[in-house]
Simulated assay, not measured.
Amino acid sequence: MPADGRRTFPQYECVLPQQSGTRGHPAALAAPLSAQAAQPAETVVDVTAFGADRTGARDSAGAVAAALRQARTVQGPVRVLFPRGTYQIYRSRPRPGSCTSPTPSAPTRRTGTSASGILMEDMRDVTIDGGGSHLQFHGLTTAFAAIRSQSVTVCNFSFDATAPKVVDVTVSETGVADGRAYRVLNIPPTNGFTVANNQVTWLGE
């Protein structure tokens, strides 16, 4: 993993094997013209056309969701393109679905809701092409989710998650000991903090 902690997903090339008797003749690997003509053309849906901000100054979650909805209506292969840049993706309100995410105070469970940064739903033959972009996710969310979808490819991007600025703390116990009141707090592991000089400092964006 790079020093900056970003996870990079490169694009891979698929190389067709040579057929028997065609060794040394790459031209023999080409499909007949009639077969090539039968292949449907790929439609490109650009997320910036829907308002996504490649400069990273604004939240692009809504624009990306709109681009995915448009891509879902396309007949044939579709490529959802992120022109090279940095995109901020903030968690949206959970919606009905088949994918669930853990909450700060509870383990993953099937509740019939989902909170996904990029959700591909009821899609087929779709490529999410980052174009070398970086996606920065905010809040506790699943970065990518595909529901009832087939032939989904995700490539050419890096992504990372920013620690939330809202702290979810559960008070599990209160009482008095040695004449002093106390509270016992349960803090999810996703919330960073430090304790020094009887003070708690929360770490986040």
Rank of each mutant, 00 (worst) to 15 (best):
G62E: 13
V64K: 03
A65G: 10
A65N: 08
A66Q: 11
A66M: 09
L68E: 05
L68G: 00
L68T: 01
A71K: 05
R72L: 07
R72T: 05
R72S: 12
T73H: 09
T73N: 13
V74G: 08
V74K: 06
V74C: 07
Q75D: 11
Q75M: 03
G76S: 02
P77V: 10
V78I: 01
R79I: 01
V80S: 04
L81S: 11
L81I: 02
F82R: 04
P83Q: 12
R84H: 12
G85A: 15
G85L: 15
G85S: 15
Q88H: 11
Q88G: 00
I89A: 10
I89F: 08
I89E: 08
I89W: 05
Y90A: 09
Y90D: 09
R91L: 01
S92N: 02
S92I: 00
S92Y: 00
S92G: 14
R93V: 12
R95D: 02
R95G: 03
R95Y: 00
P96E: 04
S98H: 08
C99R: 10
C99M: 15
S101A: 15
P104E: 02
S105Q: 12
A106P: 00
A106L: 07
A106W: 06
A106M: 03
A106H: 04
P107D: 03
R109V: 07
R110V: 13
T111I: 06
T111M: 04
T111H: 04
G112T: 05
G112D: 08
S114H: 02
A115D: 05
A115E: 04
S116N: 10
S116V: 15
I118Y: 09
I118S: 07
L119P: 02
M120Q: 12
E121C: 08
R124T: 05
D125R: 01
D125Y: 01
V126K: 00
V126M: 03
V126Y: 01
V126E: 01
T127R: 09
T127C: 11
I128Y: 11
G131H: 02
S133N: 05
S133M: 06
H134Y: 11
H134C: 12
H134A: 14
H134L: 13
L135V: 01
L135E: 01
Q136I: 14
Q136S: 13
Q136E: 14
H138N: 10
H138Y: 15
G139Q: 13
G139V: 12
L140V: 07
T141D: 13
T142F: 14
T142N: 15
A143I: 05
A143T: 08
